[in-house]
Amino acid sequence: MADVLEKPRKGEDVRPKGRIGRRLLITSPKGGVGKSTTSRNTAVAAAVESGLKVAILDLDPQRGCVKWFAMRPDDKVVAVDMYDGAIEKFEDAFAEMDEDYDLVVIDTPTSVEEHKGAMKRLILSCDAVLIPTGQHWDDTKSVTDWMRYVRSCGARASFLLNRCKPRTKSFKEARVALLKAGPLCPVEVPDREDIPTLASAGLTVVDVNGMKSSDEVIGVWLHLKNEMGF
């Protein structure tokens, strides 16, 4: 994986121009690790916990964030804005944003190998990269190779153990394997039903008082907040 994508040339600047404070990229070559879930949870946590003006940019052809946003009861929860686009033309999606945003959270497709040039440009355009992963061997092997490439671009990146079972042996083994490849978010998100249940109503655990996973989701955001210098 680390050698699949062309490395950026030294000094290359591909940051999209626009009225956007910071950009957070959620990416992983592995499917089923919760990229879209992490994108919308993080966006809402940033808006609720830090009072930021936040947008989500959905570049995944499955449009999981867009479908979630269509169900969101915007009269009862904190507002986040939604945009979508094609990964090969993500610069056009940024250009269409007609409001000022403190943060844009970017959801991406799984098949990064099919978007070599666009992924390189996208990584370089962002202030931080979060790589969600499960805790089993096939998950960690895929994402550790990807982390090496992302870091070779000079990006500030960290892993997120997501949908995990912290009391298991494989969880402990995953932490060690990931830390050998790069930084690990100090807060993991356990495998609980409240996150997918609320997602089916256009909500996150941060939108509803008393949800068990809200502390972990907010903790992930606080880690990213520090990484991006808010």
Rank of each mutant, 00 (worst) to 15 (best):
F230D: 10
D92V: 08
E88T: 02
V105P: 14
E12T: 07
V129P: 11
G117P: 01
M119L: 12
N162D: 00
A181T: 07
V206M: 13
E49H: 13
G85S: 04
L103A: 12
I26R: 11
V105A: 09
H136R: 13
F230G: 15
K169A: 04
S111L: 11
V4Q: 09
I56P: 13
R148C: 01
G31M: 02
D215P: 03
R15E: 04
C164T: 06
S158Q: 11
K7F: 05
Y101N: 07
Y83L: 14
G64V: 05
T37N: 05
L203Y: 06
L103H: 07
P8R: 15
K89W: 03
G51I: 09
D75H: 09
P109C: 14
S158I: 00
T144R: 02
I20N: 14
R22W: 15
P8W: 11
K169R: 14
G11F: 01
S200V: 10
D102W: 15
V66Y: 05
L124S: 14
V205W: 01
V14P: 00
L178N: 13
D81A: 14
D194R: 01
G210L: 15
M147Y: 03
K76R: 10
R63N: 10
G51T: 06
L57G: 02
K17E: 11
W137C: 06
G51P: 09
D207F: 09
D207S: 10
V77C: 11
I87T: 03
S152T: 02
A118E: 07
C153E: 06
L25Y: 08
K89N: 08
C185L: 03
S200G: 12
A181W: 10
E216P: 03
I20A: 04
P190H: 03
L198M: 01
P61R: 03
A201W: 05
A181I: 06
L52C: 08
Q62S: 08
W146M: 13
E227A: 11
C65E: 07
A95C: 02
V176T: 15
M119F: 15
V206N: 15
L224V: 05
R9N: 06
V217W: 07
V80P: 15
A118V: 02
V78I: 10
C65A: 12
T133Q: 02
S111G: 08
R192V: 11
S200L: 10
D74T: 14
M147L: 01
K180D: 15
N41V: 00
V104K: 14
V78E: 15
S125D: 15
D92P: 00
F159G: 03
S213E: 11
K53W: 11
I195N: 02
Y83N: 02
K35Y: 05
D58N: 04
T108R: 09
D75G: 10
W68N: 05
V187R: 09
E49C: 06
D191V: 00
A155K: 07
R175Y: 00
Y83G: 00
K116Q: 14
G21L: 10
S214C: 07
V205P: 12
R9C: 00
S125G: 11
L179P: 00
